[in-house]
Amino acid sequence: MTTVSPSVPDRVGASPVRDSPARRGSAFLYRHAKVRLALLLSAPLFWLGLVYIAALVALLITAFWTVDSFTGKIIIEWNLANITKVLGDALYHTVTLRTLGTALVVTVIDLAIAIPFAFFMAKVASRRAQRILVVAILMPLWASYLVKAYAWRSILAQGGILDWLFAPIGQTSPGYGLEGAVITLAYLWLPFVILPIYTALERVPDSLLEASADLGGKTGRTFRHVILPLITPGIIAGSIFSFSLTLGDYIAVKIVGGATQMLGSLVYANVGVANNLPLAAAISLIPLAIIFVYLAVVRRTGALENL
């Protein structure tokens, strides 16, 4: 076969580098896909294992220890005291329900804003307007979370913008409290909800919407039967963001929530002031468990397969 193509040897001869170690190394990697994969993934997997998995396992283990209430030192002794406390105490029930409710309300508000907004961006706006809107949505993510939370603190304040806005209709700002926290959290997570829904809508060809209209489907039916099923994975992705971020939040709640206590606030208090790390670990298992249940339900619906 080598004698058949006379032009090839000339071209190879023209190449100055033929057999450097780097070349041999590349050739080795080219032929051994598994080695290549191992080299590529070892660093990120090591990081993931250390930061995520190990930290979670440490959390789980710590929850079964206790603290000497006198010296404040951690006693490494297996017991279920923290777990029983968290499961049995009415305080934790109330706070868990409040946190769960807040997360659900925030998610519903965000979806109610994000779906029409994303639809406008993906299917109605001109190319130019579309780009401007994407930038407008991403822009707040450049500002610090704290800055935004404090901005809402001033918006919600007595005599703040909301008070001024609502004055003509005889209303006042909700002030600092659960409502304030819900509004602020819904604002903070909105970009994370819009973007996956927008991406999902971008992938729905316009011709599907036209086909539905062509076959007699009016706007509402087209939305229910064609758009909604196709963007469900995006909606779920967005809701996972708003839901889980709200479950774990304590800073925004502290800034605009007044005296409102969330699971995050309890964890924070036990890590800091109360200095009870094992109890904090036990409390933080609650949102973790809720998220697991949520993901299991979502998985049941089959929506994760199309994510």
Binding site: P205, S207, L208, E210, A211
Partner: peptide
């Protein structure tokens, strides 16, 4: 479109 008695076969078929 949904009020017209015409139907379309699309170039990309547009099947759901």
């Amino acid at each position: 479109p949904f009020d017209r008695d015409v139907n379309t076969v699309f170039q990309d078929y547009a099947l759901f």
